[in-house]
Design a protein around this nucleic acid. Sequence first.
DNA 1: TATTTGCCTGACACAAATGTCAAACGTTTT
DNA 2: AAAACGTTTGACATTTGTGTCAGGCAAATA
Lengths: 195, 195
Amino acid sequence: MATRDTGTEQLIKDTAKQIFFAEGRFNATTQDIADAAGVARTVINYYFRSKDILFQQVFKEAMADTGTKMNEVLGSDMPFKKKVIAFIDMFTAELTMYPYKESFLISEINAHGFSLPTKDSPPGMQQFLEEVKQAADNGEIKKVSPINFMINMLSLVAYPLLTRRLFERMLELDDTNFEKLMQERKKMIIDILFS
Amino acid sequence: MATRDTGTEQLIKDTAKQIFFAEGRFNATTQDIADAAGVARTVINYYFRSKDILFQQVFKEAMADTGTKMNEVLGSDMPFKKKVIAFIDMFTAELTMYPYKESFLISEINAHGFSLPTKDSPPGMQQFLEEVKQAADNGEIKKVSPINFMINMLSLVAYPLLTRRLFERMLELDDTNFEKLMQERKKMIIDILFS
DNA sequence: TATTTGCCTGACACAAATGTCAAACGTTTT
DNA sequence: AAAACGTTTGACATTTGTGTCAGGCAAATA
């Protein structure tokens, strides 16, 4: 049917991602999304047939996107430590832009039972876990199981960004101080991982 | 009005907590909650007047509950390392029971602008941060800012439990193996914090 | 036993959200 | 210019979720 491509379909998906992943408004209605995108609500039905299908597409793309980004870094041929730093930078940027992405994905899994399309864990991940093992044998890092190393790396970066709002309140930090704290943390995380 | 206390009010709140915090079904309807509790939907209106008020009460209690539990451990007079271990145990148990609690609280803040009641951070927290500073001066732990120590402790415990579903898929773990991994992690986390 | 009182129920009314459709609009094609 | 086509729109219908109410029930009280 030879699309004329007004960019509207993509605009709707991007707007939805903004609302779900950046603003964390998980119960946004199709009207909310349409308003934010500046289009009539029925356009959503025209392009996606139903709200559910829009959600599924956004979900699927988000998963694939995360997978690709991770794979690119973890599967690259950088030296180990450099790779870890690159990953932390990438992951920090990702979570700063879309702090609620993971929470949204998890909540959609619970709400609609969306199954994760990942056939098997991405190849880059396997390669990286192998490299962690080597680094542990080398003595470049402390002896930990590769999986735990991976989890530590993810946790130390992601958690404070995921729970940013709570931290800001609990610790009485404003946005500037929080950003500063996150920058400090990057170095500290490397220290911990390579101690 | 001299309540006769059939336990129904509490049952509804407990059921809501189960659905929100344990099952992660953030868009559950009042009907869902009523069904799970085995009562008619209108009973919810009888006890709470509206869905919003029920949500707010659950939210408020959850926040208070978390605050109390943290305060009890962090404000106790245990020796430092013992206190850290006790905290990790408590926090692990809490997150195993209610993995989606934090996510729910954050999502409600975004959706309904629920304000956090704790104006100032609880006293136990302040005391603990002070003790971290001392431990850093003692050399009992590495030199890190108390806030970062706190964040590290929380992150290493919470993140894998929050994102359990994603991890299980990505790393191809079943429930048993995941639990085992979490037990291993407890010791490892202590190692990291006290290295 | 009769009455009060708190608790619970189902039917109904209302509100909010989603989906459908015919028609209008502006490009592109003929 | 006319026709064809993809896109957009607003009115309408449907579905889903929430709140209200009168009345029924059982335990407590008199």
